[in-house]
Design a protein around this nucleic acid. Structure first.
Length: 773
DNA sequence: CAGTGAGCGAGCTTCCGCTTGACTT
């Protein structure tokens, strides 16, 4: 009989801890939350003081039953879920779901997985903190009420299946408003003047680049300035050097890891988390969902050791970072390598890269500051008051920079500050070239997945475990798309003074090119403007921060959780009802123009299935015609001509093998239909232009592919085929697929054997293909 | 997988935060 059962949230953690505790302890995991609000109705009994209707989550039934059995055999049950609001609730749910006796149940917490931390935790058990549990209930109930009252409102007023919530709606709002800001942005230009001076230092020619301390708004002024420069003398007026220090960034949290992996490695947020999970499960890094920048004392001493060994004593400077993040709960350590003396790990290339990043960041965080010397040289111009300024930076001691430097989001800073040669006051300089370049102001950057996470974290919205899911939810709901967009070329002036002559040039640059950025869709924009209009309070960027303060008061026992919920819900529910009654259905309808053929109005709007064009009106005798917008089109930007083009499909390209070849665009893009078979059209094919010849070619290509993937067909029964697919050979029969046992060679199968496999195999439960349409 | 958008109107959709597997044919 086991004396002690310890329950933690993560199975990987369970494995490690079991090693620390010895044979009297068995450690199991509950895989996160085991109970949740019922999904039928609201799951909250409004009339009964907001009593939550908990059920054991269906996918956790097995886990709970297993734990129940283990608990029966144990003398003492140790609830060791994480030390935060959600963890406390998990402990409480375990108590309830496992039907535990409170006298032999103990609650323990630790935020480092070290033997010392765990044995200490076991020595200091406590009771479940009911206040903290109540704070979690308030959080959970509030989210449910907001989500399950706002979403149905959207179904009625905009379109079915839409969703809204405390977190996702604000995330979308950020992207929508950034786009609006960009749309109304007007780039203004000014002329930046740079001079190149050549001097001889240590018998070597060196170029110094200096920038004028003033920009000219108009070309005329830039020209006038260069004209003056023709005859001017340039003198070094001042050389100022001052030392500066640079400090390393704190160790990784989930959010900063996602940002750096995106900037330095180009990983998407979900990719980063998947790889981090693999590293965690194989024991290479600590837990990857954390908001803490704290390192354990063990980690600090390991870092010290490693830095001393690899770089020398003078590079060591251990420090404790404190979090500045709103609402951080710090149940875990920062993300770090488990063993800091392990510089390189086994694994695939992405694992190696991510590990390397984590190792460097962790080590650098415990290294000395870098000492730099900054130099500012002011160069006077004899016939005008403006000055040229040259900036230099010299690293005197590299410190942590030896290992790691954090990247910035805007990496297009073109002022490279290098080393300046020694200059003295009064020294005369001769310019080799002075150039005035027309520079345009930039709009605020669009969000990337990672910079959105950064912003959400700043606002205290979302948690380490939810950043990646938020990003995918708002894309799944079609509120936001992640895309690359082509830029446009723009002309700019370049005026160069060289050899006593001024030359003017018109040059072009590419601007506005976007890679992997988040753009709002028509639906995202419409839903956001609806919610902002009627639920300004919920969509407020500070809403989460404000309710978090109240949750904290509940956790401290200063407020009763369902009172807080009542104070929120009463006006909120009233708002919902008012909106349901008073607001009209919104579709974002816009009149594009008239159809030249019929003279009828052409509208674009959001329909039941998304953005569409409509010719004519519904209440006229003639039925209106409809067409859905294609991918990449927007009701905001589509032209009348493009809209009318959508009605040219489907079209018949001609006849092939006595059947029509029909070309159209469906949910998955443009396609060819022939003999009730579908053939996708590639990116480079225009469905309006594709000829019959090309269509036949595409049909032929697909047929050839089919043949090459066929391993065997039976003449006696052509509906049974052995095919080669993504996951290896399989049997296809009546549009259902069957696995081939590993022991048999697919090419040797007889028809009888195939039929036997088909009969014996349970028709595999069809994956519920419920998709957003 | 692949045009659907009223008319009649069933029954469905939805939140956030904890955790990993299942196993694609």
């Amino acid at each position: 009989m086991t004396k002690n059962l310890v329950i933690v949230e993560s199975p990987a953690k369970a494995k490690t801890i079991e090693g620390f505790l010895g044979k009297d302890y068995i450690v199991k995991s509950c895989f996160g939350h085991i109970m949740d609000l019922s999904k039928k109705d609201l799951g909250v009994d409004i009339g009964n003081d907001f009593l939550p209707q908990y059920i054991i989550s269906p996918e956790k039934k097995k886990v709970v039953n297993d734990l129940k059995k283990q608990a029966k055999d144990a003398d003492t049950i140790w609830l060791a879920s994480d030390e935060d609001r959600e963890g406390e609730a998990i402990a409480w749910h375990l108590l309830k779901a496992l039907d535990l006796n409170e006298d032999r149940t103990k609650r323990i917490v630790f935020h480092e997985i070290t033997k010392l931390a765990i044995t200490e935790a076991v020595e200091h058990p406590r009771k479940i903190d009911k206040n903290l549990v109540n704070a979690q209930q308030a959080r959970r109930v509030l989210d449910r009420l907001v989500g399950f009252e706002l979403s149905p409102l959207l179904w009625r007023k905009i379109k079915p299946s839409l969703s809204a919530g405390r977190v996702q709606s604000v995330a979308v709002r950020l992207i929508v408003e950034r786009e609006e800001e960009i749309k109304s942005f007007i780039a203004v230009s000014s002329y930046r003047v740079q001079a190149e001076f050549h001097i001889i230092a240590n018998q070597k020619p060196v170029t110094i680049t200096a920038e004028l301390n003033k920009r000219f708004n108009v070309k005329k002024d830039a020209l006038a300035f260069l004209e003056k420069c023709k005859t001017a003398e340039f003198t070094v007026e001042d050389v100022e050097t001052k030392p500066a220090r640079k400090s390393p960034a704190p160790p990784f949290t989930t959010s900063t890891l996602q940002q750096e992996a995106s900037r330095k490695l180009g990983f998407s947020v979900s990719n980063t988390m998947r790889i981090a999970q693999q590293l965690y499960e194989s024991g290479k890094i600590t837990y990857m969902r954390t908001d803490s920048v704290n390192l354990s004392s063990l980690a600090l001493s390991m870092a010290k050791e490693e830095i001393k060994k690899s770089f020398g004593e003078e590079y060591v400077k251990t420090r404790n970072f404190t979090t500045r993040t709103k609402g951080a709960q710090e149940a875990h350590e920062a993300i770090r390598p488990t063993y800091l003396n392990k510089k390189i790990i086994e694994g695939d290339s992405s694992q190696k890269k991510l590990y390397d990043l984590i190792w460097k960041r962790t080590i650098a965080s415990q290294m000395s500051e870098a000492i730099v010397e900054k130099t500012n040289v002011t160069i006077g111009i004899s016939n005008t008051a403006e000055k040229f300024v040259a900036k230099g930076e010299v690293i005197k001691f590299d410190g942590f920079l030896k290992v790691y430097m954090e990247s910035k989001d805007d990496d297009d800073s073109d002022d490279q500050e290098g080393i300046l040669p020694p200059l003295t006051s009064g020294e005369k300089l001769v310019p080799r070239e002075i150039a005035a370049q027309q520079k345009y102001t930039q709009h605020a950057p669009r969000y990337t997945e990672a910079s959105l996470v950064k912003k959400l974290e700043e606002l205290g919205i979302g948690r380490p475990s939810t950043y990646a899911p938020i990003i995918s939810t708002i894309q799944k709901r079609d509120y936001v798309v992640r895309e690359d967009r082509q830029g446009i070329t723009r002309e700019y002036d370049l005026i160069v003074l060289k050899g006593g002559k001024i030359r003017e040039e018109m040059k072009t640059e590419n601007t506005g090119y976007e890679k992997g950025k988040l753009f709002p869709t028509d639906i995202g924009t419409l839903v956001t403007s609806f919610l902002v209009q009627y639920f300004t309070n919920i969509l407020d960027y500070n809403f989460t921060a404000n309710v978090e303060e109240e949750f904290d008061e509940i956790a401290q026992g200063k407020q009763v959780w369902n009172h807080m919920i009542r104070d929120f819900y009463t006006p909120f529910h009233n708002q919902v009802e008012q909106t349901m009654e008073n607001s009209k259905k919104v579709s974002g309808e816009k009149l594009l123009g008239q159809d030249p053929q019929s003279g009828e109005n052409v509208y674009v709007k959001i329909g039941r299935y998304g953005p569409m064009v409509q010719i004519g009106v519904t209440d006229s005798e003639k039925k209106p015609r409809f067409a859905g917008l294609n991918k990449g089109q927007s009701i905001d930007t589509i032209s009348l001509e493009e809209a009318l083009d959508l009605f040219k499909l489907p079209r018949t390209a001609g006849s092939f093998e006595a059947d029509d070849v029909i070309i159209s665009v469906g949910r998955f893009g443009p396609y060819i239909k022939h003999k009730s078979k579908f053939y996708s059209l590639g990116k480079n094919e225009d469905p309006l232009e594709v000829s019959l010849e090309r269509a036949i070619e595409i049909i032929g290509e697909k047929r050839n592919k089919e043949i090459s993937k066929t391993i065997r067909v039976f003449r006696e029964n052509e509906s049974v085929r052995i095919l080669n697919g993504r996951f290896g050979p399989y049997i296809s029969y009546n549009s259902a697929n069957y696995k081939i046992p590993k022991s048999t060679k697919p090419e040797d199968l007889t028809l009888e054997e195939c039929m036997k496999i088909i009969k014996e195999t349970e028709p595999s439960k069809k994956k519920t293909v419920k998709r957003k349409k």
